[in-house]
Design a binder for these strands. Structure first.
Length: 194
DNA sequence: CGGAAGATTTCT
DNA sequence: GAAATCTTCCGA
């Protein structure tokens, strides 16, 4: 079990999305620690991907952090009510990110249940908006350094699983980009979203 | 400056 | 299947 170094994030978004599966996301909010395993991700490649916020987009708006080096948090608000948590990949000026879509709760489950107001574990982290509520991730963490102390990833050697891939979800508007098989899951994991 | 749409969730 | 709800982007 060790904290992942900066170099871990300095690869392309697709590779990072695959490498993130099975890793553990740790959220330390003033001592209220929650940990959960990443079981579902999606890659967003800003240069070629119509579905990405950074596609043909400014480098000065909400996507700005994507143009920095990897290993930082990209958090945005969607539909006015839900946050989504992304991890920036690759080197500077390459807008690629990996969206965290689902987690398997490990520690601090009681805290997550209180935040989510439910006692069903499968309901805690099975979707981008839900996991942000459970881990208390919001835009105050926009640009947070994942090599820092309040939000980071660890590796506990968990690798006995297969990676399944498929088309991404809820981006039908992206035309041909919607068919790219850039959604990655831990095969057979019960916490993957619908 | 105003309108439209969105990487979602939840309830009916 | 539709509403909730607000930030961001784009056109005027």
């Amino acid at each position: 079990m060790y904290k992942l170094p900066r170099e871990f994030y300095l690869c392309d978004g697709i590779e990072l999305s695959k490498k993130l599966l099975g890793k553990i996301l740790v959220r330390d909010k003033g001592g209220a620690v929650t940990r959960a395993r990443i079981v579902e991700t999606e890659a967003y490649m800003g240069t070629v991907d119509k579905a990405a916020h950074s596609y043909k987009n400014n480098s000065g708006g909400r996507c700005n952090i994507q143009y920095g080096p990897g290993g930082y948090a990209y958090v945005y608000l969607i539909y006015g009510m839900y946050s989504c948590f992304n991890i920036v990949a690759n080197a500077e000026n390459i807008p690629e990110v990996s969206l965290i879509r689902a987690l398997e709760p490990l520690d601090g489950i009681d805290i997550m249940m209180a935040r989510r107001k439910t006692d069903k574990i499968r309901n805690l982290c099975g979707g981008p908006g839900k996991l942000c509520m459970a881990m208390d991730i919001d835009r105050s963490l926009y640009g947070a350094d994942l090599c820092g102390g309040e939000l980071y990833l660890t590796d506990d050697g968990f690798d006995g699983f297969e990676i399944a891939s498929g088309p991404r979800i809820n981006i039908d508007y992206a035309e041909e980009a919607a068919a790219f098989p850039w959604r990655f899951t831990v095969k057979g994991n019960k916490f993957v979203s619908r």
